[in-house]
Simulated assay, not measured.
Amino acid sequence: MTASNPPAASPLTVFIEGIGLTGPGFSSWEEGRQQLTGLAPHIPQKTLLPSPMALPPAERRRAGAVVKVSLAVGHEAVAAAGLNVADLPSVFSSSSGDGINCHEICSALASSDRLISPTRFHNSVHNAASGYWSICTGAMQPSSVLCAYDGSFAAGLLEAMTQAVIDDTPVLLVVYDTDYPEPLRSKRPVPDTLGVAMVIAPRPGARSLARITLQDDGGLTSTAATTMSDAGLEFLRQTIPAARALPLLQAIAHKQAAALVLDYLDGTQLALEVASA
């Protein structure tokens, strides 16, 4: 008998069913799509965060920027996909959580009384956004919460793609970052809030926007990350970790086949192929 090599594993492939986007100068995927395709100029403006009306009044009053941005983009993506929000497993990913809340807690600890608000405390955990999501949607499906510093978008994307294929179910990915006030900003200069959400499915559907496939070797590469030609959008990509998604969003917006590389870990990037669904 002669030994035979095992069959090569199929490349990891998923389909994007819906997108949500909020950030400096755009408040929806449609506004962002116009700018990513050059149909409208990118005009930097402070991110406007809507009140999370899906939350009960008590929780709504306690919601900070992290909760507002993650709920906004999550709802937009699920609505675009036309799926039942309560049925979707989710992956939440952020480079460092709620910077504003962290600043307030540090300020309290540095004061004379050193008392921390209970609301500040329970919003300080990294899975706060995921918890509020389950409260407002009634979702009982599993939720993973990740942090990979500046590589948090790529880490979340890999996790969501893997879950979608292995569990054979659509998965909601929500990635977000908020700004840091001074003096923390001097050490972690994230200038503003940005969130992006995607519904990722293992097979195409009637509303599929694009097909995404990891390139060979699990998508890992040492090739430099793809940059944005627009200076304003490139500034966002470089300074807000969640905005590392912008090259992928631009490829989806153009509805054209593209090979691109996303920032991931130091010296290791994530290589993807994007095509029409």
Rank of each mutant, 00 (worst) to 15 (best):
P118V: 02
G64P: 07
I116V: 15
L55T: 10
S117I: 05
G97M: 01
P50L: 01
S117A: 06
E59K: 14
P57M: 08
R60W: 05
V78E: 00
S111E: 03
A81T: 14
V78A: 00
C106T: 06
V85I: 15
K68M: 11
A63M: 05
A80G: 07
L55Y: 13
G74I: 09
P50G: 03
S95V: 04
P57L: 10
G82F: 06
I116D: 03
L83A: 12
V69M: 06
A110F: 06
P57C: 08
G99W: 05
V67N: 02
I105P: 07
K68Y: 02
G97K: 01
E104G: 00
R61D: 11
A86F: 03
G99E: 09
R60H: 02
L115D: 10
R114Y: 08
H103W: 02
V85D: 08
L71T: 15
A54P: 00
R61P: 01
H75N: 11
D87G: 04
T119Y: 03
V66H: 06
S94I: 02
G99I: 05
L83M: 14
E59R: 14
C106K: 09
S96H: 13
S95M: 01
L71G: 02
R62C: 03
F92L: 06
M53H: 11
S51Y: 02
L48E: 12
A65T: 03
A72N: 12
S95T: 15
P56A: 15
A108S: 15
A77V: 10
T47S: 13
E104Q: 14
A72C: 12
T47G: 11
N84D: 15
S90I: 00
S51A: 11
G99V: 06
F92A: 04
A65L: 04
C106V: 10
P56F: 10
D98G: 11
V91S: 12
K46M: 07
A86Q: 14
M53R: 13
H75M: 03
